[in-house]
Computed example of a mutant assay.
Amino acid sequence: MKKIYLLFLLITYANTFAQVSGVGVGTSNPQQTLHLAGATGTVRVDGLSSTNNAFNGGGFDKTFPLYVNNNGDLTLSLSTFTNSDGTDAFTGTTLLPAAAIVIPTTATAPNNGTRNVLILAYPITVTRNVVLEIKYNISFEVYRSTGVLLKNNRARRISTFYTVDAVLGAGVSKHGQASKCYFSNDTSVTVFAAPGNMYNSTSTYIPLTAGTHTIRFYGEANTGTTNDLTLVNFGIGNDSVFMRIY
């Protein structure tokens, strides 16, 4: 009977102490709700091991990121805001408008050799201040005109980027800029520049405030200081977009 009474007192004391100051392991003065004292203190959760969790890739010398879901549960599962996951992110039904650049466009257009086009506008709503990670892989092809390959020795710079909450214009910031140079050094009538898809890729981090925002992906072509005849089609390959909120 005395042993039961003593055990009851110890449990009562532990519960009272935990309610007031937290639970300490290796310390009688916990500084948090759960405090592991000592230079080698850590937490082990068997449910997150490689044996019990498919998201743990295993390996003696490897580690994996740990996340918290909306319930406060610890998890190894990565939740993304959007992930094309191998499917084509920019298709004929998503491109806004037809994502093609023609140089020159009209006789009255600026003679600066630069044109841009909106590829896709993507709305996003967040409920708190966040950092948004954006990775993209956007395809394009370069021609002289529809169905006609290039065969002059002027280079074309093809760029992609995106804006946040703004239509492209003077003073608008370009984020995630990536470029390729397309060039043919043979003007022979029988030799043309190589056809095929090319890709621009990049990864960036952008701070966003709580609310609704619009991410606008753009393509740009530049032929130098003059309007050399050029056609660039964007989004013609297997494109990808990955977004994640921190």
Rank of each mutant, 00 (worst) to 15 (best):
N70H: 14
G72V: 08
L74R: 15
T75P: 14
T75V: 11
T75I: 13
T82Q: 15
N83K: 07
D85M: 03
G86Q: 04
T91L: 07
G92V: 06
T94C: 03
A98R: 12
A98I: 10
A98H: 09
I101N: 09
T105S: 10
N111L: 11
N116W: 10
V117Q: 06
I119V: 06
I119T: 00
A121I: 06
P123N: 10
T125H: 05
T127Q: 14
V130T: 12
L132C: 11
I134N: 04
E141P: 02
Y143K: 14
Y143F: 13
S145E: 04
S145M: 01
T146I: 14
T146M: 11
T146P: 05
V148I: 15
L149Y: 14
L150K: 07
R156A: 00
R156W: 01
R156M: 02
R156Y: 00
R157G: 02
I158R: 02
S159Y: 04
S159G: 04
T160W: 00
G169W: 15
G171P: 11
G171Q: 13
K174W: 01
K174M: 06
H175D: 02
H175G: 03
G176F: 01
G176L: 07
A178V: 01
S179I: 03
K180V: 01
K180E: 00
C181W: 05
Y182S: 00
Y182K: 00
F183M: 07
S184G: 03
S184V: 03
N185L: 04
D186C: 15
V189I: 13
T190K: 10
V191G: 13
V191L: 05
P195S: 08
G196C: 06
N197A: 09
S201Y: 09
S201R: 09
